[in-house]
């Protein structure tokens, strides 16, 4: 009798351990990558380097947070890289033009938010797929950036501007802290607010969501707006770190953000995913990239390896998924 009571409990534990393992394949992958690079490079496992990886991952990471929101809705935003460049250029341009730093930053954030709002409205009102809408936005916004900067990099005049983010907690930069805080906040947002949970409903079964009275259009609009805001925030942080605004800043970063999100395991089709996964995906990309640079890998090899990493991680996900199916 006792045996039959403990037996299911045991297998329950085993089952739970397995689900945790299965659900966090990206963290396993990250761990493996860290171990690998620690072994092959003496520079990898240093506080300095790791802190640097965190800071570098933050820019694409913040883009990826917005992308996760939009992707859980079953949509995509290809314009985040361009929006980042726009915010970056506006922040520096306005500041150079005499606006105080807070005003310039606020204006840049506002511009990004407006771009997100525009994307969201077009998707919600026109019924066009967001792939098309934001592809258009990507080209249009990048055009705006070129017009605004005149095609040249803008250099910030006021060097104090670049010192704003020079705040550290131990070795952790303000930029990285902002990224983590956003991950925490949006994870909470997804699980504990009505809007956040409804994002899953919308992505999972739009018909059912609409039938239940969720205003799907407005819902998506909010997420696109948040995504635009986050892209602008990433752009502002980048402008402070670099002190320059390249018209080509953030080019193809939208792709890296999407890759990070997908790598984490959030579903492209929508309805499934969360910020922990995205954090894992972002860090995994950053670690692999950093490790390859430490090994002095040529740029093109780096791209090839990154591509393979993506396939590998997705393959892993697939295998694990099949594993669970069989287990059922």
């Amino acid at each position: 009798m006792t045996q039959s009571l403990t037996q299911p409990a045991l297998s329950g534990h085993k089952g739970m351990a397995r689900t945790i393992l299965l659900r966090s394949h990206i963290w396993l992958f990250l761990l493996a990558a860290c171990v690998f690079f620690s072994v092959v490079s003496p520079y990898f496992l240093t506080v300095n380097n790791l802190a640097n990886v965190l800071t570098q991952s933050a820019f694409i990471g913040i883009l990826a947070i917005g992308m996760t929101l939009v992707m859980i809705n079953g949509e995509i935003d290809l314009s985040v890289g361009a929006t980042l460049a726009l915010a970056c250029a506006l922040a520096i341009g306005l500041h150079n033009g005499g606006a105080s730093a807070p005003v310039a930053i606020a204006a840049a954030l506002l511009a990004g938010t407006a771009m997100g709002l525009l994307n969201g409205s077009l998707v919600a009102l026109s019924g066009m797929h967001s792939f098309v809408v934001t592809l258009g936005a990507l080209i249009g916004i990048r055009g705006l950036v070129f017009v605004y900067t005149g095609g040249n990099a803008l250099l910030v005049n006021d060097f104090e501007y670049t010192e704003i983010p020079e705040v550290y907690l131990g070795q952790i930069s303000l930029t990285a802290m902002i990224f983590f805080a956003l991950v925490l906040f949006f994870q909470w947002f997804l699980t504990s607010t009505r809007h956040g949970r409804e994002a899953y409903a919308v992505g999972d079964n739009v018909e059912a969501a609409r039938d239940a009275g969720i205003r799907v259009g407005r819902h998506k609009l909010i997420n696109f707006t948040l995504c635009g805001f986050l892209a602008a925030l990433s752009g502002v942080l980048l402008s402070m770190r670099l002190g320059t605004a390249e018209p080509q800043a953030g080019r193809s970063w939208e792709l890296w953000a999407i890759i990070a999100v997908v790598l984490g395991g959030t579903r492209l089709k929508g309805g499934y995913g969360d910020m922990w996964r995205t954090l894992g995906g972002v860090l995994a990309l950053a670690v692999v990239q950093n490790g390859l640079r430490l090994l002095n890998t040529p740029n093109y090899v780096e791209l090839i390896v990154m591509g393979l990493v993506l396939l590998l991680a997705l393959g892993l996900d697939r295998i694990m998924l099949l594993g669970t199916r069989k287990g059922e």
Binding site: S192, T193, R194, H195, G196, R197, E198, Y200, A201, D204, N205, E207, A208, A209, D211, A212, G213, I214, G271, Y272
Partner: peptide
């Protein structure tokens, strides 16, 4: 049937009118 498979039973039952504690925070 018209349900969202990724959501919980409770979430599906009350879909569209989930209770909140104010400020849009879900009252799970």
């Amino acid at each position: 049937l018209s349900l969202s498979p990724e959501l919980s039973v409770a979430e599906n039952i009350f879909l569209g009118s989930w209770p909140t504690k104010g400020l849009g925070i879900l009252n799970k």
